[in-house]
């Protein structure tokens, strides 16, 4: 690209598009682009500011391991994955839903047909881009990711999670059915880079990869994650193309820690929301483009904070609304 077409010199985070409209072969009413920034978060203006970060609310298809605090809050929704997903967008105000197939974590899982059904149900119930998390067991990865990918064909969902020793099925599903991939490595900048190289070898284009450097829980190693995100952003801006990818952050164990688990029932929601908020907010400051939480109350708090950080840096419609409109 010539200088003329690229008025902002310097290195940028690669842009990743999530969701597909009807015209693009999907059914989403909104699509997002994440990434694109040429500065540290919230410091740039104009094109260098990149696209605004997105807030995802995590839901699951098998609530047995989900936090009782969240289950109490969402009530009956937990029994109806589609309704839960719809509420995430409308009632709770999330930018996107992250559907976690916790059912696949039980030993001997083999109800693969249910995965496709649930994906279709959630697609039908929602209008925004989706993140879908499959299994964590290599033995069933192939079947799980094929089912999920196939059921969501054309929707350009963000599929998780590829890891260094098990990335093939996720990548294959993304390639076969047109999705993007979450690439997770355990808090290490070089491992993150290596996984991107491995994914590259499957022919998955770089603009379909979102990095997950793994987020430790607040008080339980969060500082490692915070710094590794800062480092990734920093070397990306220095020109390391293998790391110039948007990041996703989810402190998934937030609601399992002692402080939250043992909180007085009266204040449990408060504690849960704060524990998620401080980690997710810090992740945004460190460079995460997608932050994921589980308590609906955290979404609103993050939304306000994000608005204050983005003030004036993005066109209103992109920052808070429908990009495709």
């Amino acid at each position: 690209m010539s200088e003329e077409h690229n008025p902002e010199p310097g290195n940028r985070i690669l842009e990743v598009r999530l969701g597909a409209t009807k015209a693009e072969g999907g059914t989403r009413e909104r699509v997002y682009t994440v990434g694109g920034a040429g500065t540290f978060p919230f410091l740039g203006a104009g094109p260098a500011a990149g696209h605004p970060p997105r807030i995802a609310l995590e839901i699951c298809d098998d609530t047995r391991t989900w936090s009782p605090i969240v289950l109490r809050e969402v009530g009956d929704l937990a029994e109806d994955t589609g309704a839960w997903a719809a509420a995430a967008e409308t009632t709770f105000g999330a930018d996107m839903v992250r559907l976690s197939f916790t059912s696949t974590r039980q030993r001997g899982f083999d109800d693969f047909a249910s995965l496709g059904t649930t994906v279709e149900e959630v697609i039908g119930a929602t209008k925004y881009p989706l993140i879908v998390e499959g299994s964590t067991e290599p033995a069933i990865d192939s079947e799980v990711y094929r089912r999920i990918g196939e059921a969501a064909e054309g929707e350009r969902v963000l599929l998780g999670t590829a890891e260094a020793d098990r990335y093939r099925s996720v990548a294959a599903s993304a390639l076969a059915y047109g999705h993007a991939v979450v690439a997770q490595t355990p808090i290490d900048i070089n491992l993150a880079k290596q996984l991107n190289i491995l994914l590259h070898e499957t022919a998955l284009p770089p603009e379909r990869i979102v990095i997950d450097p793994y987020t430790g829980t607040l008080g339980y190693g969060f500082e490692y994650s915070y710094s590794v995100m800062e480092r990734i952003r920093s070397v990306a801006l220095q020109g390391d193309a293998d790391l110039a990818r948007p990041m996703i952050s989810s402190a998934i164990d937030s609601l399992n820690v002692k402080e939250v688990r043992e909180a007085d029932p009266e204040t449990a929601d408060e504690v849960a929301i704060r524990w998620e908020f401080y980690a997710a907010f810090s992740a945004l400051i460190a460079g995460a483009e997608i932050v994921c939480v589980r308590h609906p109350g955290t979404v609103a708090l993050l939304r306000e904070a994000l608005r204050a950080l983005l003030e004036g840096s993005h066109p209103q419609e992109e920052a808070y609304g429908d990009e495709s409109a």
Binding site: S142, R146, A172, S173, L175, A203
Partner: peptide, 12 residues
């Protein structure tokens, strides 16, 4: 074919 391609990339 898409499924076959999946299995090829996937390594199965």
């Amino acid at each position: 074919l898409r499924r076959l391609g999946y299995s090829l990339v996937d390594g199965s």
